[in-house]
Nucleic acid binder design. Structure first.
Length: 592
RNA sequence: GCGCCAGUAGCUCAGCCGGAUAGAGCAUCGGAUUUCUAAUCCGAGGGUCAGGGGUUCGAAUCCCUUCUGGCGUACCA
């Protein structure tokens, strides 16, 4: 029986994590102990266990082994050829219950685990941790602030606000899984000159009726820009109105409140559909009363200087344009408010990390922002991260935001749901609860397509691609989950972890279990680099392994012992897929 | 002009703190269902890892350089 173990996730972990993993994986621990001792006895060279552990990787081919020790690095320290080292170490190996065999292949020493033991170990972990499998307590007592979505009032929620929300929410969940306390903040763009513009537009063209929907507000906004092209005085007028607003003027404050309420109603509708929540909705306006203090601190630090009548922090020394703090009319800017908000959040939450999930086009802003914090003497600026993501591009000219056209998120989501409904009608017309499932699948497809690629990649917004439910997609993962649930339903009993794992002797079964074992590693890696796509990619690998297995082996058969064992495996896969889907904000349907 | 990011199969991407034979999905073509859900699986074709130099026992991966594309570059956010 050939072996088909092929995966590579081990090779890229940080040394720190590898240490933690060894606690979890006794197989690697065993290898590390063996190598450490052997190097000592064979070459009289002493190496730390964590050094050895960093070297352990996974061979690229199933025939080669489960874990490998490349001997190149050792060769330098021991001053022998890597081939010779591998050979000499291999000779001294004795099998035990964890590692059953070792093979020397050129400069590599390849280890084979005791599969039955490995499977037993992993399945027991999953069975005992259940929904908690993949979590840890490494963040206990620490806090992460995540700033996501943060749309501007009076415009429709744009696609990039959805990206920010989905990425941000996933990062939030990842850190919760690692035991951190998280604060999710929607830093609403509810302040700034654009409010002056809106007020001007409303007063001039708003008519008698009080606006009640975001479409009306948006039209006013668009009209303002159109008219301002011919009449630049409108810009001055809007700056004056914003100034009034900032000074607490009644009329403008009332309008501001109205505009904000209308927008929030609209936003909440979309957030509900996507399952996005926040702990705080403290937008820019929230900091209005604190701005003077912030500016005062900047002044005291001697950072402020006057330039063309505006107050700025000069950043020439750092090869950056100056950071504007107050405009020539004394009004604040977004940098002012961001700095103020950061100070507030540090006071309020005493975070260990603060994450801004905002598009790449604002890179310079965050670079300046961090530099100013540093110059103010805040060491914690080191723990502020701009988690940027690529632009959303439109293939289809009809949907371009240019020419005042926008993709309405609500339309996009509804389109996806109705597409899911069509497919259900076609494939499984008698499905119970099909409306709810169409929701989960339709929305899931959107969420998944947004998170599956590295965030830095630009997204080519293409209906056909986003609404394609074949291949590496959200529906694929959900479908896999539903199938597993279906098998367990058919089995009719509760999976019994007492079933014999030794019966799971197929290569596909072992491969699957290895993927499951890597799930907590994927979580950790994804959180470390704020990259949900790492988790998504791992979920796809699990599903792909499972489907391959499913098509090759029957789970429920006449052999009741074997069936019992396979059901335990199936239940564990189901559990892990469920955990992963929830982590990225998707619902795992029991059937579809 | 300057700065940052990206360039891997026809398309979308993974792999990138150097290691064993560059991998997926989509699309195309060919197969699999009396059997636990075919939204699945198996197979085929498809590559100058943008070009050039360098470092190294070894480079898609690190350094330099050129080209292409995107974004940013003080009173918008």
């Amino acid at each position: 029986m050939g072996e088909r173990i092929n995966e590579n996730a081990f090779s890229e972990q940080s040394g720190e994590y590898k240490l933690a993993r060894s606690v979890m994986n006794p197989f690697i621990k065993r290898i590390v102990c063996f190598v450490t001792e052997s190097v000592q006895s064979a070459f009289d060279v002493e190496l730390a266990q964590c050094e050895i552990e960093k070297l352990i990787e996974v061979p690229p081919d199933y025939k080669m082994g489960d874990y490998a020790l490349p001997c190149f690095i050792l060769a330098k320290q021991v001053k022998r050829s890597p081939q010779m080292i591998a050979e000499k170490l291999g000779v001294g190996f004795e099998a035990d219950e964890y590692i059953k065999n070792v093979v020397t292949t050129g400069p590599y020493l390849n280890f084979f685990v005791n599969r039955g033991m490995f499977i037993r170990h992993v399945l027991h972990c999953i069975d005992s941790e259940k929904d908690g499998f993949g979590t840890s307590d490494e963040g206990e007592g620490k806090c992460v602030v995540v700033d996501y979505s943060s749309p501007n009032i009076a415009k429709h929620l744009a696609v990039h606000h959805m990206r920010s929300a989905l990425i941000g929410r996933s990062i939030y969940n990842l850190y919760v899984a690692l035991g951190y306390k998280c604060c999710g903040i929607n830093h609403l763009g509810d302040w700034g000159t654009q409010f002056g513009k809106l007020i001007v537009a409303y007063k001039k063209w708003g008519g008698e009726e009080t606006p009640s929907d975001i479409e009306t507000l948006y039209k006013l906004y668009v009209r303002f820009h159109k008219e301002a092209e011919d009449d630049p005085s409108l810009e001055d007028e809007s700056r004056e109105w914003f100034k009034k607003l900032e000074n607490g003027d009644d009329e403008s404050s009332e309008l501001w409140r109205l505009f904000k309420d209308i927008s929030m109603k609209e936003f909440d509708k979309i957030y509900d559909m996507l399952g996005i929540t926040f702990d705080y909705y403290t937008g820019e306006s929230f900091y209005n009363g604190m701005l003077d203090d912030t500016v005062e601190r900047l002044k005291e630090s001697g950072l402020l200087e006057l330039s063309d009548n505006a107050q700025v922090v000069n950043l020439d020394k750092y090869n950056m344009p100056p950071c504007l703090i107050r405009k020539s009319d004394d009004a604040s800017l977004y940098a002012t408010r961001d700095i103020c908000a950061a100070e507030y959040r540090k006071r309020e939450f005493d975070f260990d990390k603060m994450v801004y999930v905002v598009g790449s086009e604002q890179k310079l802003h965050f670079k300046q922002f961090k530099k100013v914090l540093e110059l103010m003497g805040y060491e914690w600026q080191d723990e502020c991260y701009h988690v940027d993501f690529g632009l959303v591009k439109f293939k289809d000219e009809k949907m371009s935001t240019r020419k005042g056209k926008v993709v309405l998120l609500e339309d996009l989501l509804n389109e996806s749901i109705s597409r899911a409904r069509e497919i259900i009608k076609e494939k499984n017309p008698d499905l119970d609860g099909r409306d709810e499932i169409a929701d989960a699948v339709g929305i899931g497809a959107i969420i998944f397509s947004d998170l599956k690629n590295k965030r830095i990649k630009d997204v080519n917004f293409d209906w056909d691609e986003i609404l394609n439910f074949d291949g590496e997609t959200g529906p694929y993962v959900q479908y896999t989950h539903a199938r597993l649930c279906s098998i367990i339903r058919k089995y009719g009993k509760n999976p019994d972890i007492g079933a014999d794992p030794e019966l799971l002797s197929e290569d596909e079964e072992f491969l699957l279990v290895k993927k499951l074992e890597q799930y907590p590693v994927a979580i950790k890696r994804a959180a470390d680099v704020f990259e949900p796509s790492i988790l998504v990619g791992h979920l796809l690998e699990i599903c792909s392994s499972l489907n391959s297995y499913y098509n090759q082996c029957r789970i429920i058969s006449d052999d009741s012992s074997l069936t019992d064992s396979r059901i335990v495996l199936i239940d564990c896969v189901r559990q892990v897929i469920k955990n992963g889907l929830l982590m990225i904000g998707m619902r795992p349907p029991d059937r579809m």
